[in-house]
Structure formats: structure tokens, C-alpha cells
Amino acid sequence: MYRTLIVEDEADEAQRLTDLLRRYGQAHEVEFKTTWRASAMDMLSDKSRYDLCLLDIQMPGIDGMEAAGLLRTYDDQIPIIFVTNLAKYAVKGYEVGACGFIVKPATYGNLSLALDRALRAVAQNAGRTLTIPTDSGIRVVPLRQITFIEVMKHTLTYHIVGEEPLDTRGSLVKLEEELADAPVVRVSKSCLANMDQIAFLRNSELQMSDGECLRISRTHRRDVIDKVTDYLGGRR
């Protein structure tokens, strides 16, 4: 599922983009969960995490080009597809790392080509790995395959989708520092959870994709709820 932000001041055009995304998803067997924001200010105040942004350029107040520059100050990875009435903005758009450009009214053909490029970029961004030393050698594990990591007496245990847990010596504090920009959240003093692997959030626990339930400590509960709802787009 691709969390997709549509920033467009015209409701009809936002709906058109949503419908075209749905059509593309059906054709390519992928799903888009869309959120609509009607202005650049609304976009910049939204702290949720998205995989993809469709951004109108000509909007009242802060225009889309300026908003994209501001977005890049804290997220240099998210693919941006610009949508506008004027093709002259195309060159300037690529200065802020746009991966696509669509002239209104959006059509399935031009959006489809832009989405092909954008989703390739998303796949590349999702390729982060962890290098884990073990008794038998170094293991390189994609971060997306790790559900959670816990520590007990200086032993880190990596819980990996479809595999037995993997143990190694280490510090959870140092690992958390290394993963500061990754989608992980501290659940308790001894546990980090991968937010991409969360199946369900309850008030006092996380249920992970492998069925494990992680108890959220009282001291971390508010932080966990805030980070997980932001990441999964709960504030919509």
C-alpha cells in the first residue's frame, strides 16, 4: 500500500487524481491510500509520513514549487509529481527533485508514466538493510523484513519475518541512534518496533504482522501513539 498525499486546491481535480490512482492500482495490483490537502500550508503542517506526493503548483498562498522546496528540507526522499496548468514550470520542478510532471487536466496516460517512475523511486528508498554480525558471519537483512528488536543482558534479538529470531551482542540505545531516520519506534525500555510491520495499534500494545503483541510501557505510550498514528496516517 502506498500512502499518497494529494495537494490540490480544486476538489474536482483532487477527485480526478484519486480516481486515476485507483485505476492505476487496479491495473498494476497495488493499492493507494490517499489523503487530500487543499493548500500548501495544510501539507506542511501535516506531519504524517507519505510514500508519494502529487502536488499542484498554482495554489493561493504558498505555491506548490515553494512548498516542494520546504518539503525537501526535511524529506529528501519522497517522490513528488507536480500537477499544473502551465508546462513552463517543468524545468524548475526538476530542480527540487520532481520525478514527474503532469499538465492539467490529468489523464490516465500521463499520470501512469509518472507513477511508473515514482514507484521505482519508492522501491529504491525502501531498500535499506541492517548488517548483523553473527557467529557464522555477517547477515544483511532488509529492514522491512524485521518486525521488532528486543534486548536482554546486552543480547539483541532481531525478529525477522518467516525466520527464527537472530541473536547478536549489541546495544539497543546505539541501534536506535543508527535508525534515527528509519520507521522504528521505541515501545519499551527493551524493545524497538518496525512501524511498517504493525498490524494493529491498541492503547497499550502493538500487534505485529507476525501475530506478536508488544506491550507498550506507560512511559512510552504517548510517544508511540503519536509516532505510529503520524506514520500510518492516522491524523486524517
Rank of each mutant, 00 (worst) to 15 (best):
E29N: 14
E29L: 10
E29K: 15
E31H: 13
E31Q: 15
F32Q: 06
F32I: 09
F32H: 04
T35A: 06
T35K: 06
W36Y: 04
S39A: 10
M43D: 08
K47A: 14
K47D: 13
R49G: 02
L52H: 12
L54M: 12
I57R: 02
Q58R: 15
P60R: 14
P60H: 10
I62T: 14
I62W: 09
D63S: 07
M65D: 11
E66W: 01
A68F: 05
G69C: 06
G69I: 05
L70I: 14
L71R: 01
T73A: 08
T73R: 14
T73W: 04
D75A: 03
D76Y: 10
Q77A: 07
I78C: 10
P79L: 02
I80T: 08
I81H: 12
K92G: 10
K92P: 03
E95Y: 01
G97N: 06
C99M: 09
I102C: 01
P105V: 11
T107W: 07
L111C: 06
L115A: 09
R117P: 01
L119T: 00
L119K: 01
L119N: 00
L119M: 08
V122A: 08
N125Y: 01
T129M: 01
I132H: 01
T134K: 07
D135C: 08
I138Q: 13
R139G: 02
P142E: 00
L143S: 11
R144C: 12
Q145M: 09
Q145T: 14
